[in-house]
Amino acid sequence: MTETIPQTEGHRWHDMGGGAAGAVPLADHDFALWEKRVDALMILCSAKGHFTVDGLRRVLEDMPPSSFEELSYYERWIASISQNLVEAGVLTTFEIGERMSAIQERGLTYGDASDG
């Protein structure tokens, strides 16, 4: 799979300028509530000084190139936000894992599993 991902020689994967690619996909989508919440968490946590946009980008850019194809935009963002919050000592991996298990027990859909 990795060899099918276009890469510009000498650039890291996120540095896409000048690479080859197909037609621009013009379809758009309305952002889902969970995506807006991820965006809001980024803005609030950075405004409160827990990490910076550079911290967000560092984790995104350290992901493997396949992340761009396999994860959506806000999936990458929440992965980076949680990593930054762990590094900042705000959250621990243990409590995140424990809470995720509890959430997955609550229901099969986002609506059922989310209190909000």
């Binding site: 929440i78 949680s82 409590e95 959430i103 099969l108 059922d112 989310s114």
Partner: peptide, 29 residues
């Protein structure tokens, strides 16, 4: 149903819920 509420819960959605709840409980937001 809201489009985001009637699909199977994804791993990343569960992570968003977990991070958000923990941040609220800890008084971060």
């Amino acid at each position: 149903f809201r489009a985001d509420n009637d699909h199977p819960l994804s791993y990343w959605q569960a992570l968003e819920i977990a991070v958000r709840e923990l941040l609220i409980e800890k008084g971060v937001t």
